[in-house]
Computed example of a mutant assay.
Amino acid sequence: MKTFISSATAFYILAPGEKLSRGKMNPDISRMYVIYQDNLIWTYRYKWINGWEKPTDDVFSTENDALNSAYDHFLLSKIK
């Protein structure tokens, strides 16, 4: 698992087949994204107030594309 933190928001990037466990999450961060591979496609989920959400139905061919989409979602949420 790789972790990227920006403005008190954690982005967890899981290796193919890896699961996110509570023990690996930073307990001081309430806003987070998890980027993961599901079969051969990459996607992500977002968690803040309402539990885990799927902000988009888009799927991505690479980990980087999924991370960029998650970060774009994060930036847009900061504007609202």
Rank of each mutant, 00 (worst) to 15 (best):
R22L: 12
T3C: 04
Q37N: 05
Y33L: 05
M25C: 14
R31N: 09
E18N: 13
Y46A: 14
N26C: 06
L40E: 11
F4G: 01
I13A: 03
F11R: 00
I35E: 11
T9Q: 04
I49M: 11
K24Q: 09
F11E: 01
I29C: 01
F4A: 03
P27C: 08
N26I: 07
K19F: 03
I5Y: 06
K24L: 09
F60G: 01
S61T: 12
S30K: 09
W52L: 14
E53V: 08
F4L: 10
A8W: 02
T3F: 01
T3V: 13
D38R: 13
D57I: 03
A15N: 13
M25V: 11
I29Q: 00
T62S: 15
D38T: 12
V34T: 15
K24S: 10
Y33C: 07
S6L: 15
S6M: 10
S30M: 05
L14N: 09
K47V: 02
T3D: 02
M32N: 09
T3N: 04
I29Y: 00
A10Y: 02
K19Y: 02
V59A: 04
Y44V: 14
E18C: 13
A10M: 04
R31W: 02
F60C: 02
K24H: 07
P27Q: 11
E53W: 02
L40F: 10
T56D: 11
V59F: 06
G23F: 01
W42N: 06
M32E: 12
Y46D: 14
P16N: 12
T3S: 07
I35G: 09
D65I: 00
N26E: 05
E53H: 03
E18V: 10
